[in-house]
């Protein structure tokens, strides 16, 4: 049976997007986060959805038009490549210096977050959204105790930034029980 994994499909779509960018003489820089970044780090995440999340790029109209062409060709969701994650601020500390580079494309400077940063963002995502896919991804990422703690610090930074120190103090009991939960669940 001729089957194609969702990762292969997305990489083919990116390859085609790169060709269109080349024809239009456009160069872009994408910093990939989310499950695609987990895959690019070489971890065994065997199933995913057909989308790529990126940050640090404000998409031009021309770029969006090209991604729509690819979406039609591959029957991907209209926002198969999206910048929804760009709203995360502040970003994890030192993210710029910990990015990895994938140089397979001529016109897409493809960067992706390393495992350390991916863990921080997933810990925060799981605390905020409480989605099963986030704890499942954390299992794949298999963090150490200190990586979990960095993730919790990043979560605290987010709460402090968006809601202030008083709210953070109110959330501390829950954050501590969250940390205990993550230790139990991810370090066994």
């Amino acid at each position: 049976m001729n089957t194609q994994s969702t990762f292969d499909l997305l990489l083919n779509a990116l390859k085609d997007l790169n060709s269109l960018l080349k024809e239009s003489n456009l160069h872009i820089e994408l910093t990939v986060v989310g499950s695609m970044a987990i895959y690019l780090n070489g971890l065994d995440i065997n199933r995913m959805t057909e989308d790529i999340d990126y940050i640090s790029y404000d998409p031009s109209e021309e770029f969006i038009a090209l991604t729509e062409r690819i979406s039609k060709k591959y029957k991907l969701p209209s926002d198969w490549i999206n910048s929804r994650a760009k709203d995360i601020e502040p970003l994890p500390k030192n993210i710029e210096n910990s990015l990895k580079l994938d140089n397979r494309f001529s016109n897409i400077n493809l960067k992706f977050i390393n495992i350390d940063i991916a863990i921080q963002m997933k810990v925060y995502a799981y605390y905020i959204r409480g989605l099963e896919k986030d704890i499942s991804d954390l299992k794949v990422l298999s963090p150490t105790k200190s990586q979990i703690e960095k993730g919790l610090e990043f979560t605290k930074d987010q709460i402090r930034h968006h809601h202030g120190e008083t709210q953070l103090n109110k959330d501390m009991v829950e954050l501590n029980s969250f940390l205990e939960f993550l230790y139990d669940e991810l370090l066994k």
Partner: peptide, 27 residues
């Protein structure tokens, strides 16, 4: 995996799981 906060519908069926992203249909 266990859930930090168990989804109420899962709980009803004795399943310990976090919520699913059921609103993102197109995804």
């Amino acid at each position: 995996s266990k859930a930090f906060k168990i989804d109420t519908l899962f709980q009803e069926w004795n399943i310990d799981s976090s919520s699913l992203e059921l609103g993102e249909i197109d995804k």
